[in-house]
């Protein structure tokens, strides 16, 4: 009797809560660092990127209008679901090569912990960065943070899971929705993460994940007039300049790539959240 043949997974895009192939029919070969075939990933087209922006825009009112408590609960749920798939992520990360099972396990654990950390921020960030302002007159005056809108995330090219989640979580916990361009060389954990997101009560369209060429997809998003912000963490220097120039057209909020290598295991601080928060100040007279 021959050995059972494995049923392989088809890796597709994640748009609006669904898993479509690229409308272009394009795919690219994902290999391990030794060159072994791992999968054919979808190579997202401009149309896919635009569809993802439409899905993110559609999800924005509901997600930004949800209570902070609810968003925190859902991020915590993502952590729970991710924990349950620990072995699968370890297998996917080690299959690429260069990382042992122990190190891959540590990365998955840190990813779960990162989600739990951000989950707790949902109903605290407003108290930390908002303010009641003592204006010189009979007015109530309150400043509070609000999400920027639709954010494009060029995911880090290192840290295919921990880096990816460390970029997505701060964007969505405050109420933004996003379109993510996954790490080009190691995209498979991103799509498996999409399966986690799809089963975590996260409304469809809050996170949309595209695989393919960052150099190709990022400029489409950077120049898109219905995208409000862009995180260029995963863009190389040349791509980052191109994207920042395109982003100026509708004055997107730009998070520039870090100056040096990032230690994704370190506590991140609140900068990735505040990069995609607006401050709204409301005035009202006080009187009888």
């Amino acid at each position: 009797m021959s050995e059972r043949l494995a049923v392989r997974k088809t890796y597709k895009l994640f748009i609006g809560g669904a898993f479509p192939r690229s409308e272009s029919g394009r795919s690219y070969e994902v290999t391990s660092s030794k060159g072994d075939f791992l999968a054919n990933a979808a190579r997202a087209s401009r149309k896919d990127a635009r569809d993802a922006v439409v899905a993110a825009r559609k999800a924005f009112p509901g997600w930004s209008g949800a209570t902070a408590y609810n968003r925190g609960q859902i991020l915590y749920r993502i952590a729970e679901m991710l924990e349950g798939r620990r072995a699968q992520f370890v297998a996917e990360i080690t299959a690429v090569g260069g990382v042992g099972a122990k190190q891959a396990g540590d990365m998955v654990d840190a990813t779960v912990d990162r989600l739990v950390w951000y989950a707790g921020w949902s109903d605290k960030i407003g108290a930390v960065v908002g303010s009641a302002n003592p204006v010189a007159g009979p007015y109530f005056n309150l400043s509070s943070p609000e999400p920027t809108g639709v954010v494009a995330v060029i995911a880090p090219q290192t840290g295919p899971l921990l880096g990816l989640v460390s970029a997505i979580a701060p964007v969505i916990v405050t109420g933004n929705t996003c379109v993510v361009v996954a790490c080009e060389r190691v995209p498979l954990p991103a799509i498996t993460l999409a399966e986690v997101l799809a089963t975590s009560d996260l409304p469809g369209g809050v996170v949309n994940i595209l695989t393919g060429s960052a150099a190709e997809i990022a400029p489409w998003l950077a120049g898109h007039m219905d995208v409000n912000g862009i995180d260029l963490t995963g863009a190389d220097a040349e791509l980052a300049v191109t994207c920042e120039e395109l982003a100026a057209e509708n004055l997107k909020r730009v998070l520039r790539p870090p100056a040096g290598p990032v230690d994704w295991l370190a506590e991140p601080g609140i900068g990735r959240m505040t990069a995609f928060l607006e401050t709204k100040t409301v005035w009202h007279p006080i009187g009888v």
Binding site: V135, A136, N141
Partner: peptide, 8 residues
């Protein structure tokens, strides 16, 4: 209305 304590 404007005030130095109020973000704009």
């Amino acid at each position: 209305r404007f005030d130095p304590t109020s973000p704009f």
